[in-house]
Design a protein around this nucleic acid. Structure first.
Lengths: 332, 332
DNA sequence: TTGTATGCGTTATCAC
DNA sequence: GTGATAACGCATACAA
């Protein structure tokens, strides 16, 4: 016998409607019958079928998180953060890692419709500048952006203050006397890459310094190897950099490894600063100086903002800027 | 106007049943009408509502993956592997990381019922020996175990040959002349921990060596710090180990860092072998010797086995043992 | 080949 | 307070 409302109702000697009310609007049903129903529910460990609920109410309590890959602690933590908040609120999370999805971001939108997903957390700045707005336009459900384009109007977003972070890092290196600073950035057309590189350029301008364009290499955020090859390329310059600003810790560690292999003394010959402060950063040897960004919190706040928009009709658009710290360890 | 079967049917001048058939059993509908319907479907970019489909057919095309945490590349890759296979087959994945779920494994089961999840991939050996079987008993849907208890009967499982891996690693160290070998294991009651430690004991027995019980420390798989503290504890022994066998790369890297901080020369003073071969292992400095386990494949195979059980009525129970390699880098 | 009718498990709108 | 009943969007057995 299936364990559904009908069977509960039968056992309690009431109608399904009453069972439904006992669960959703307890105050509308007589205490005595309510107790009786809830006892049976408890006893049979019954829980309403979410699909039927979804069909009936239009609310599925499903949230999607879009990340580039889970093979990076930063996004892993972000996902864990979203998860823990959403679960506590009775929601479930579907994670799309679009690198495994074959970069078919639009396929994800299709899925969202089919699954009646209620809200979307877009992370990873993996959406490129030119297709980005087009994609957002096709989405009809509430969206929260994480670490993405805060300039986008009409959309709540949570992001870390990477402009402040990059600024601090660049200023620090310059104040340490570095004149040739290599930049290992993410992919060229990505939003965060764009924003961070502008921050660096501004610092250079403030200090009346020139950013050597040959010192800017675009890599892949998820690839240690791309950090390593970037460093090798940088060191081949006629005037090789004496310090590296990497746009995330993966790139930084890749570069660090390559630098060590080249026999460079860290930080004497070459200083390196990363970004994110993944757990491994503190445990690398030498420990990586980096910008700490609170990825777990990032996830929790993103989830919270999204649920606010879902449940409060007139929830305002919010832009949350999470503070960042420059952590100086052994590579500076 | 909602875009559903009814509206498609109206536009095509047919009944909803015909639309449904055109989508699911194309051969049953007249080519002409089929073309007409599919054209409209294409045009409106229509896709059937999965909830309604689920309610009607009982098939939701939802699979759940249970991991301890995503804050570990091993599980991140595993998840990505599952994801990519499932997506290609039209399924979606819900990931439960139970450390964020407050270790309420049974709560997950509840969810599985509510969401009508069709199949379950259990990973991470996070389920402890004593509650494990009890949990499995409560699950009524097909389950595939990943890196878990292959002894469990009646359940397909994919696991890496960690017994072979640990054996190779232990033999290698002994053959190198190490007599005092420290073990940094996972939590004591976990299944993989148990299995791996037995493998090590067997090697010691084969070589007529004694495993000093003071040289066995139980740590946390997800914690770099626990690897570091384990090492510190080990080195305080009257006869400190000259080699370390760590049960995953996180623990190994934590230990490595602590060893370097103690001023030990690697591998002269202390050799270290990890397990998993996460991307960072090759990029650590010194590069970590470890057992390579194909985590992405692990995910794909797990997903494949699960779908086999879901779609083929008499799919046999399979136990897949993925081969493992000992990769000797700079810490041995 | 196509249409009608029923059911899937809920919620919500009515009456009672 | 409670019980029928329609509706949600789709699949399918049965009729035509």
């Amino acid at each position: 016998m299936p364990i559904n409302m009908k069977s509960i109702a039968a056992q309690a000697g009431v109608s399904v409607a009453t069972v439904s009310r006992a669960l959703n609007r307890p105050e509308m049903v007589h205490p005595a019958t309510r107790e009786k129903i809830l006892a049976i529910v408890e006893d049979l460990n019954y829980a309403p079928n979410r699909f039927a609920q979804g069909l009936s109410t239009g609310k599925t309590k499903l949230i999607a998180l879009v990340v580039p890959t889970l093979n990076n602690s930063f996004f892993g933590q972000l996902a864990d953060g979203c998860q823990s908040y959403l679960i506590s609120e009775g929601y479930n999370l579907i994670i799309y890692s679009y690198e495994e999805y074959g970069h078919k971001e639009l396929g994800i939108i299709h899925d969202i419709d089919q699954r009646m997903i209620e809200g979307l957390i877009l992370s990873g700045s993996g959406f490129y500048l030119d297709t980005y707005q087009e994609m957002l336009n096709k989405i009809k459900i509430p969206v929260v952006l994480v670490e993405n384009s805060p300039e986008t109007t009409g959309i709540s977003s949570v992001y870390i203050d990477d402009v402040a972070g990059m600024t601090m890092a660049a200023q620090y290196l310059i104040n340490q006397g570095h004149k040739q600073i290599g930049i290992i950035a993410g992919p060229e057309k990505m939003l965060t890459t764009d924003r961070r590189i502008k921050a660096v350029r501004n610092v250079f301008k403030d200090y009346h310094l020139n950013l050597n364009e040959k010192h800017v290499i675009f890599g892949e955020y998820a690839s240690l190897e791309s950090g390593a090859t970037a460093l090798q390329k940088l060191m081949k310059n006629r005037k090789p950099p004496t310090a590296i600003l990497a746009f995330n810790d993966i790139l930084a560690i890749g570069a660090l490894k390559a630098a060590i292999q080249l026999g460079l003394k860290i930080p004497k010959d070459l200083a390196i600063i990363g970004f994110d402060d993944i757990p491994m950063a503190a445990y690398y040897s030498p420990a990586l100086s980096t910008i700490h960004s609170p990825s777990l919190d990032l996830g929790k706040h993103a989830a919270r903002l999204l649920l606010e928009k879902l449940t409060e009709a007139d929830a305002p658009i919010k832009k949350m800027l999470l503070p960042v710290e420059l952590i100086l360890r052994e590579t500076t």
